[in-house]
């Protein structure tokens, strides 16, 4: 029997039918060491988010849209501490029941921590993608990269206007 097995990254039919999930404002205040930082979450067109923790460290995860499109995450492979990443490098993978999806680093830098909880309980990516389900932390090589990514507003527009993510 045949059916198409090639699942495009988040481009599956189900994903297209999803409403852009309402994106909550950052609820991660406790980890913000500096209150003057504009700790706004930024997004990539591949549905990773990145948020500054200090001037030169950031935390990375995938968006609510991404986790919904992916479905139940059953395995997470995250970059090891010390890994040097360039922006857009493939640095890990999330496996759902339906498909495997690569994780791309939204920024350049060195991995300082990975979320072991997510490796043990991959479903955290589904239940808490902006909080407990974060993926890894990076010490930034080029903090300007963050500024150039989409704001929450822009990302929302991107989700509603683009037909194929």
């Amino acid at each position: 029997m045949v059916f198409l097995t090639k699942f495009a990254r988040f481009g599956i039919q189900a994903a297209r039918q999803l409403r852009a999930a309402p994106l909550a404002t950052p609820q991660w205040r406790s980890i913000h060491v500096s209150s003057f930082l504009d700790a706004e979450r930024r997004y990539t067109d591949k549905h990773e988010w990145v948020e500054l923790v200090t001037n030169n460290t950031a935390i990375v995860g995938i968006s609510s849209y991404a986790q919904e499109a992916l479905g139940d995450v059953v395995f997470a492979q995250l970059p090891d501490v010390g890994t040097e990443l360039k922006q857009d490098d493939e640095c890990g993978a999330l496996e759902s029941v339906k498909a495997a999806s690569e994780v791309y680093s939204p920024v350049s830098g060195k991995v300082t921590e990975k979320n072991n909880l997510v490796e043990d309980t991959p479903a955290l990516v589904n239940t808490s993608c902006y909080e407990k389900g974060w993926l890894f932390k990076v010490s930034l090589k080029n903090p300007d990269e963050v500024e150039k990514l989409m704001t929450e507003e822009q990302y929302k527009t991107y989700l509603t206007t683009s037909t194929d993510h």
Binding site: M1, V2, F3, T5, V97, K98
Partner: peptide, 20 residues
């Protein structure tokens, strides 16, 4: 049910997918 569910079932049943 969608094709993802069906693919899990046919794999558990050991049934071949033509082309794969």
């Amino acid at each position: 049910a969608g094709l993802g569910a069906r693919d899990s079932l046919r794999l558990e049943a050991g049934l071949c997918l033509y082309g794969s």
